Deep mutational scan, measured.
Amino acid sequence: AVSDRLIGRKGVVMEAISPQNSALVKVDGETWRATSGTVLDVGEEVSVKAIEGVKLVVEKLE
């Protein structure tokens, strides 16, 4: 799938994300809905860990 190429890519949080709420991230110039197990604020850099349906699963870039 096209989205599989995004695993391992870096992105930027466009809307705050919490474990209860998905929000938008920008990866390679494209906007995607994403979820995370932690709270992520706007502007934080993230890494794509997986794809669940049409959502990216991201975590904060260390």
Rank of each mutant, 00 (worst) to 15 (best):
A1Q: 11
A1R: 10
A1I: 11
A1M: 12
A1G: 11
A1P: 11
V2D: 09
V2L: 13
V2T: 09
V2W: 12
V2N: 10
S3R: 10
S3P: 13
S3L: 14
R5A: 08
R5F: 08
R5Q: 07
R5I: 07
L6K: 01
I7G: 01
G8W: 00
G8E: 01
R9H: 07
R9A: 07
R9G: 04
K10S: 07
K10L: 10
K10I: 13
V12Q: 05
V12G: 00
V12P: 02
V13S: 02
V13K: 00
V13W: 02
M14G: 00
E15Y: 09
E15I: 08
E15V: 11
I17K: 13
I17T: 15
I17R: 13
S18D: 08
P19K: 10
P19D: 12
P19G: 14
P19V: 09
P19H: 11
Q20I: 09
Q20W: 12
Q20Y: 13
N21P: 05
N21K: 12
N21H: 12
S22A: 11
S22D: 15
S22H: 12
S22M: 12
A23K: 03
A23H: 07
A23Q: 05
A23T: 08
V25I: 10
V25E: 02
K26S: 10
K26N: 09
V27S: 02
V27H: 02
V27A: 01
V27F: 04
D28L: 07
D28V: 02
D28C: 14
G29V: 01
G29C: 10
E30C: 13
E30Q: 11
T31V: 14
T31Y: 15
T31I: 14
W32F: 14
R33L: 15
R33S: 12
A34Y: 07
A34K: 00
T35L: 10
T35H: 06
T35K: 07
S36K: 00
S36D: 05
S36I: 04
S36F: 06
G37M: 14
G37E: 14
G37L: 14
G37R: 11
T38Q: 14
T38D: 14
L40Q: 02
L40I: 09
L40S: 02
L40D: 01
D41W: 14
D41K: 15
D41H: 15
D41E: 14
V42M: 06
V42E: 06
V42S: 04
G43M: 03
G43A: 03
E44Y: 06
E44F: 06
E44N: 09
E44Q: 11
E45G: 06
E45R: 09
V46K: 02
V46N: 01
V46H: 01
S47N: 09
V48A: 01
V48P: 01
V48T: 02
V48K: 00
K49H: 06
K49M: 12
K49P: 01
A50R: 09
A50D: 06
I51P: 00
I51L: 07
I51M: 06
I51T: 04
I51R: 05
E52L: 11
E52C: 14
E52Q: 11
E52A: 09
G53Q: 04
G53C: 04
G53D: 05
G53H: 04
V54R: 12
V54C: 15
V54S: 14
K55Y: 15
L56M: 05
L56A: 01
V57R: 07
V57H: 06
V57T: 04
V58K: 00
V58H: 00
V58S: 01
V58E: 00
E59C: 08
K60Y: 04
K60F: 03
K60E: 02
L61M: 09
L61R: 06
E62F: 12
E62Q: 12
E62L: 12
E62H: 12
E62R: 11
E62P: 11
E62N: 12
E62W: 12
